[in-house]
Design a binder for these strands. Sequence first.
DNA 1: GCAATATTTAGAAAATTATCTAAATATCTA
DNA 2: TAGATATTTAGATAATTTTCTAAATATTGC
Lengths: 95, 95
Amino acid sequence: MKQQAVFRALADPTRRAILKQLQGGPMSAGEIGEAFDITGASLSHHFTVLKHADLVRTERRGQYIVYSLNSTVMEDLTRMVLDLFPTAGARGGKR
Amino acid sequence: MKQQAVFRALADPTRRAILKQLQGGPMSAGEIGEAFDITGASLSHHFTVLKHADLVRTERRGQYIVYSLNSTVMEDLTRMVLDLFPTAGARGGKR
DNA sequence: GCAATATTTAGAAAATTATCTAAATATCTA
DNA sequence: TAGATATTTAGATAATTTTCTAAATATTGC
């Protein structure tokens, strides 16, 4: 798990918005892009960063490329957060 | 809660290392700085970012300024993470 | 008050990141 | 195969961030 890649990926608001979009289920790059006012090339750059952090998965479907959330990383991420603030979340507190 | 400020603050490895240092308890700026090979001025900048994200608290103690973790933010942070990956962590899954 | 120590602020340089346009690659349909 | 659509790659520019040096501010102890 590349901690740095994950935190760096989450630091950008556009990328977090992409992740939120994907909560609705897998979407093509173009569909995702409709919600943003940036070029496809810039979007593609963000996808690269998200893939590098292993936060999303891709699959080519015909001429489209479909992105989806990689929710298994969520556990790792939670662990990283807890690792940074052990005092508060240490041992199974309330949720 | 300034989501952007928190994620941005966590994106830098030096700042995450500072947070880890503070796990050992409150420390003065100078003590924290001993572990890093950067100037006090740069360190001070990182403190500013961490404070802006409300991840640390400060208290002047004589000529020192003592930093400590603000662990209450941890809950917010966990919430933000869960918010980004709802499918996996949604409702009290395993821990 | 003055010198010493601790930290921050100001301003600039260096490094990184986000974005763009143009061109390349991949797939589909006719 | 040729043309259309979807996405990525390349290379450049703009914006942001990290770091530095030098100077400023705050506090202590003489």
